[in-house]
């Protein structure tokens, strides 16, 4: 399955999704980013095995000389719904592996798919990337609750990023953003098979010669469909009736079995 999201350039054509876009542009630079998606909602069926989402956009007010030298870099991120996440570390206690230490990070995206003109690490200095919070290595991971003197902060942050990346929730595609004409670009971000339900944000960042100058964000609702999701929704949103139904189903199964297999 491939989801293609067509391009929207002229402001007059902007759909509701784009109209709600947030903008963050430095006033001392003339460049601005425009991106568009044709829909603000994607329905995913239960046999979904991952897909590519293509976003089109353009740099406005660019400097043709800089563009020709390839000084502009674009990083597009699809950030999943945010939630607190706890990382736990096991240690050996009397021969048994036990979760001993933990750290909870505040409001981190459950999924994160990154696409850029080249490897994010080479686009801008680390401090700049950390400031913007773009790139798997630079995502904001703020610990919450008690976390001691913070000496193991790096360790837990690294473990979080590694686990998210190895689990396929965080992905990156250096080279996923391509210029298709002078200032027009196409970004391909991956929707993982385990894409979480909820409101995602497509966030595009523009860098000029290693300096962040503009950002544009659009919301994208991912809603799973099908029987599995219906059951899952019922388990969460109508938990008590769901529990009662589970019991009734069990009682009925047991009763029917005793009828069917009754000794003649």
């Amino acid at each position: 399955m491939r989801i293609l999201v067509p391009l929207l350039l002229a402001a007059s054509l902007l759909l509701p999704a784009a109209a709600r876009a947030q903008e963050d542009t430095r006033p001392d630079y003339p460049e601005k980013l425009e991106i568009g998606i044709s829909t603000d909602e994607i329905a995913i069926s239960s046999d979904f095995r991952g897909a590519d989402l293509t976003i089109f956009g353009a740099i406005e007010g660019y400097d043709p000389a800089l563009l020709a030298q390839g000084k502009y870099d674009i990083v597009v991120a699809l950030e999943g719904p945010k939630d607190d996440a706890t990382v736990r570390k096991k240690e050996r206690v009397f021969g048994i592996w036990v979760n001993r230490r933990s750290m909870t990070f505040e409001l981190v995206p459950e999924s994160y798919s990154l696409s850029s003109t080249r490897d994010v690490e080479t686009i801008a200095p680390t401090a700049e990337l950390n400031g913007v919070g773009v790139g798997i290595q630079h995502i904001r991971l703020t610990p919450t609750g008690y976390f001691g003197d913070g000496s193991n902060l790096t360790e837990f942050r690294e473990a979080f990023k590694r686990l998210k990346e190895s689990g396929g929730y965080y992905q990156r595609d250096p080279g996923g953003v391509q210029f298709i004409s002078a200032s027009l670009f196409k970004a391909t971000v991956k929707l993982p098979a385990s894409v979480p339900n909820g409101t995602h944000v497509v966030r595009a960042h523009l860098f000029r010669d290693g300096v962040f100058i503009s950002e544009k964000a659009l919301p994208l609702r991912v809603s799973k469909t099908g029987i599995e999701q219906m059951i899952s929704n019922a388990a969460y949103n109508n938990a008590f009736p769901y529990g009662v139904f589970s019991v009734l189903l069990a009682v009925l199964t047991g009763w029917l079995a005793s009828l069917v297999f009754r000794k003649e």
């Binding site: 939630d83 607190d84 996440a85 990382v87 592996w97 409001l107 473990a159 686990l163 998210k164």
Partner: peptide, 19 residues
């Protein structure tokens, strides 16, 4: 399984508070 060295000593869970 309790005694064997786990393949990864770290694990991550989503707290589900904003679900």
């Amino acid at each position: 399984d309790l005694v064997a060295t786990p393949s990864d000593i770290y694990s991550v869970v989503s707290e589900g508070v904003y679900r």
